[in-house]
Nucleic acid binder design. Structure first.
Length: 269
DNA sequence: TTGTGTTTTATTGCCTCC
DNA sequence: GGAGGCAATAAAACACAA
């Protein structure tokens, strides 16, 4: 074993050059400006293969790789030091107990920093996923808005075409119809998922009449008035099928199929 | 070689706990 | 009040590009 082993004779370390600040309150600012190392004696210094000849005892010295190795192993088992363990380690390493304590202190700080970095990176990736999910929901929302507008216009055109020439009550304009649609009169979207996802127009043919809500499996998203959904759910007919309930001009109130679970959008685990 | 950024060792002051 | 922990910081040691 080389002479700088952490099992070296502690008596050598207790000899002469130590300036060990046992009671930290003892050193005032003036004294601290004349800092001296408390690790090495002359004997240790010159026996230590890890260091060059130009190291003088006045310089701060790093711990040897072996010392660090043992400290790391000890830190792995328990990152806090009880007094007994500190004394024992210090003896083994030929260090002052204070040095061991300082090393553990700094090691805990490094460990905490690393942990914070890991946490930050996790949080950031969660946030990025959240953001991309939000964007896709925003797109859905946009699509559905134009869908509603288009349907309202069609409806008005249809009613104008069939209205009688005389004694007719004036029809509401498209915006009024749209507003009325907004007031909880939205029928479930008749567009099937594959249709909606295709690049084609979302405008429907006449035979694609609005349907009543019957299944959430076939349609995505199903636009369901809240009261209708509650009725639907109260009937117990939904059986675990989740519906994408959209307030067309407001917030999404439940996760879309295949989005929330996989992307972790609805909460971090 | 030197300037610069990073890591490690150590100190200080404040806080909490017993 | 003393011991020990932590955050902030200083300063030496080290790494590395120019």
């Amino acid at each position: 074993m080389e002479s700088n082993s952490f099992f070296f004779d502690p008596s050598a370390a207790h000899g002469n050059m130590f300036f060990f600040q046992g009671a930290r309150s003892m050193m005032n600012m003036e004294e601290s400006s004349k800092r001296r190392p408390f690790f090495c004696s002359h004997e240790d210094l010159y026996d230590d293969d890890d260091y060059n000849d130009d190291h003088t005892p006045d310089k701060k010295r790093r711990l040897t790789t072996q010392q660090v190795h043992l400290l790391e192993k000890s830190f792995e088992t328990e990152n806090k030091l009880e007094p007994d363990r500190k004394t024992e380690l210090a003896k083994k390493l030929g260090l002052q107990p204070r040095q061991v304590a300082v090393w553990f202190q700094n090691r805990r700080a490094r460990s905490k920093t690393k942990q914070l970095e890991r946490d930050f990176s996790l949080l950031k990736s969660s946030y990025d996923q959240l953001l991309s999910n939000y964007d896709s929901i925003l797109n859905d929302n946009h699509l559905l808005r134009s869908q509603v507008t288009s349907l309202a216009e069609k409806l008005q055109a249809k009613e104008e075409a069939t209205k009688e020439p005389s004694g007719q009550v004036p029809e509401a304009n498209p915006q009024q119809q749209l507003d009325s649609v907004n007031m909880n009169h939205i029928e479930p979207s008749p567009i099937k998922t594959e249709d909606r996802l295709s690049s084609g127009s979302t405008v429907l043919d006449e035979e694609d009449a609005p349907q009543l809500l019957d299944s959430c499996d076939s349609y995505f998203p199903s636009i369901v008035p809240i009261h209708q959904l509650e009725e639907h759910n109260n009937n117990g007919s939904d059986n675990d099928r989740s519906c994408f309930v959209v307030d067309v001009f407001g917030a999404t109130t439940s996760p879309p199929h295949g989005h929330g679970e996989s992307l972790g959008f609805w909460g971090w685990t």
